[in-house]
């Protein structure tokens, strides 16, 4: 582990990414302290479509709401969806992968076929169908994003478990008559934690991107709640005369996802020296 820590620290970019994420989370949590404007407060008289200025550093939207404060508050939604959906998909993926890898047999066949089926789908189209056909809501989004994002993790975990289960300490455990859940949870899962954390980190960034895409097609969170994606969607209509509405939330997504990817990559290098570029 010490070597991993050293490698991780070496990756200054990853560290910078981590700090940036921390700042982003703090900024959205303490948004009320950072901005004088209420994100939902409308100024229909003379306050709509104002370009960036001192009072509104990122301008205002079609209802005269302050974009800067909306980005901070929207970050809560985007980050929360990212965290929870990623947590869900990684948990699912780990369980599925570990079950498949450890027990093998019919269960493995079934699980891996399901993985194949879901992987063969353009995820966005599947998501669109699910969200459009049912009613888009925060919970539905998290569940649906979680349910369609676990396959990658499942494959990775299964691979790891397959190699672990033949290792001496596991064989020893089995010889001692330990029950399967105990071996799985006490001995195998801690050893696949590294790749799982990497997958989780990368998955958060990816989920934020996909949520933004869904929102862009009008199928994300519903107003007046806003995520960065739905803000871009709002700005799309006004792109030609109020460019700031779509541009800044897009930058927010870009920066956030970059940070998660930086950290994820950094950790992968740290856990798996083979990958060091």
């Amino acid at each position: 582990m010490s070597r991993a820590t050293v490698n991780f620290a070496h990756s200054r970019l990853a560290a910078a990414g981590g700090i940036a994420i921390l700042l982003l989370v703090l900024a959205s949590l303490f948004a009320p302290l950072l901005t004088p404007h209420d994100p939902d407060r409308q100024h229909l008289d003379g306050g709509i479509y104002l370009p960036p200025s001192v009072d509104h550093p990122l301008g205002t939207d079609k209802f005269g709401r302050d974009i800067f404060s909306r980005i901070l508050y929207g970050g809560r939604v985007s980050l929360a969806i990212g965290f929870f959906a990623a947590a869900m998909s990684v948990t699912l993926g780990t369980l599925a992968g570990a079950t498949a890898g450890y027990f093998r047999g019919v269960g493995e066949g079934v699980i891996m076929r399901v993985v194949d089926v879901l992987l063969a789908f353009p995820r966005l189209i599947l998501l669109l169908a699910l969200v459009a056909l049912f009613h888009p809501s925060l919970v539905l989004l998290v569940v649906v994003l979680g349910l369609t994002g676990w396959m990658g993790t499942a494959r990775i975990v299964r691979g790891e478990v397959l190699s672990l289960r033949e290792r001496e300490f596991i064989l020893a455990g089995r010889a001692l008559g330990f029950r399967a859940p105990r071996i799985l949870f006490r001995h195998i899962l801690p050893n696949v934690l590294g790749p799982v954390i990497v997958a989780a980190t990368l998955s958060i960034g990816n989920t934020i991107l996909i949520e933004a895409s869904l929102s862009f097609l009008g199928l994300g969170v519903q107003p007046p709640m806003a995520s960065w994606g739905s803000m871009i969607n709002d700005g799309k209509e006004a792109l030609t005369h109020a460019w700031w509405i779509a541009t800044f939330p897009g930058l927010a997504v870009l920066v956030t996802v970059s940070c998660f990817n930086l950290v994820g990559d950094g950790m992968r290098d740290a856990f798996d020296p083979r990958f060091e570029p």
């Binding site: 939902d40 407060r41 409308q42 229909l44 209802f63 519903q222 107003p223 209509e237």
Partner: peptide, 16 residues
């Protein structure tokens, strides 16, 4: 209904 920006905008303003 979804897919009608004007109606959604009305609701947001009326809410306030």
């Amino acid at each position: 209904n979804e897919n009608n920006d004007l109606r959604k905008d009305i609701v947001v303003i009326v809410q306030e």
